[in-house]
Computed example of a mutant assay.
Amino acid sequence: MSLNEQFVAMFAMLISGLCMGIVFDGYRVVAHQLHFPKWTKPVLDFCYWVIAVCFIFRMLYITNQGELRFYVFFGLFLGVWFYFLWFSFTTVRIVVILMKVIKQIVRLIQRLVEIFLLKPIIGLYKLVKFLIRILFLSAMFIGRIVLQLLSPFWRLFKFLTRPLWRHFKIPEWVKRSLDYGTRLWNRLFKRKREE
């Protein structure tokens, strides 16, 4: 390899070292801000190093066909050292600010969803529930009025058909149904009169 190609490879490794530092600090800050469980730290570290090694070898393959020389390690070390010496603090600050901005945006979206979607749905549900209750109470009220209006006719029907019932044997289930209906009738309308 020519000297020029070696300098290009070393410069690529220096940039790779800087990129490794940026990704490492970024992932560390994000993991801290999102409160990842402690058991995920070794898994995330392993994933980081696998991705970093793949990235470095890809860059190495592009610049010098994958040859491992001293200047490759030297360039990588310089990149990481420069990053942690001059850029780490700034990167951490920027990532923290970005995380705060993203959290604010997420809170805003949640609030908008709550105001424009959830609250109208809850309000509509309460309105429908109220209307159904009103309709049910109205139906009960109208039913009571109808039953009260039909009461004299029912008594007249019972009085007129009483001689017929003496000649016919009424099944037990019919008697039980009539008794139940009478008890229900008395319960509904005796309460009404007492009120």
Score class of each variant (00 low, 15 high):
residue 154 W to A: 15
residue 154 W to N: 11
residue 153 F to A: 06
residue 154 W to G: 15
residue 143 G to H: 09
residue 147 L to Y: 06
residue 139 A to N: 03
residue 158 K to N: 15
residue 159 F to V: 03
residue 159 F to C: 00
residue 142 I to A: 06
residue 140 M to L: 08
residue 135 L to S: 07
residue 144 R to Q: 08
residue 146 V to N: 13
residue 158 K to V: 08
residue 144 R to D: 12
residue 136 F to P: 04
residue 151 S to H: 00
residue 132 I to A: 04
residue 150 L to D: 02
residue 126 K to E: 02
residue 132 I to N: 01
residue 133 R to L: 13
residue 147 L to E: 08
residue 143 G to F: 12
residue 132 I to F: 00
residue 155 R to V: 15
residue 154 W to Y: 09
residue 137 L to W: 02
residue 131 L to K: 09
residue 128 V to M: 01
residue 127 L to K: 11
residue 138 S to M: 09
residue 151 S to V: 01
residue 158 K to Q: 12
residue 153 F to C: 05
residue 140 M to Y: 08
residue 130 F to S: 05
residue 149 L to D: 01
residue 134 I to K: 06
residue 145 I to W: 11
residue 145 I to H: 04
residue 156 L to P: 09
residue 131 L to Q: 04
residue 160 L to N: 06
residue 145 I to M: 10
residue 145 I to N: 04
residue 127 L to G: 03
residue 142 I to H: 05
residue 140 M to A: 09
residue 149 L to V: 15
residue 130 F to R: 05
residue 126 K to Y: 02
residue 134 I to D: 13
residue 136 F to C: 12
residue 142 I to R: 12
residue 152 P to M: 00
residue 138 S to T: 07
residue 144 R to L: 11
residue 140 M to I: 13
residue 152 P to W: 01
residue 155 R to L: 07
residue 157 F to V: 06
residue 137 L to H: 11
residue 147 L to M: 13
residue 155 R to F: 14
residue 157 F to T: 06
residue 144 R to P: 06
residue 136 F to Q: 11
residue 160 L to D: 15
residue 135 L to A: 10
residue 138 S to A: 15
residue 157 F to N: 14
residue 149 L to N: 13
residue 153 F to E: 12
residue 148 Q to L: 14
residue 138 S to W: 08
residue 155 R to K: 14
residue 150 L to F: 00
residue 158 K to E: 05
residue 128 V to G: 01
residue 135 L to T: 13
residue 130 F to Y: 03
residue 140 M to E: 10
residue 142 I to Y: 09
residue 141 F to D: 07
residue 134 I to R: 14
residue 148 Q to P: 00
residue 138 S to Y: 13
residue 152 P to F: 01
residue 144 R to A: 10
residue 151 S to M: 01
residue 154 W to Q: 11
residue 156 L to W: 10
residue 152 P to A: 00
residue 154 W to K: 11
residue 156 L to R: 07
residue 146 V to C: 12
residue 153 F to G: 05
residue 145 I to Y: 15
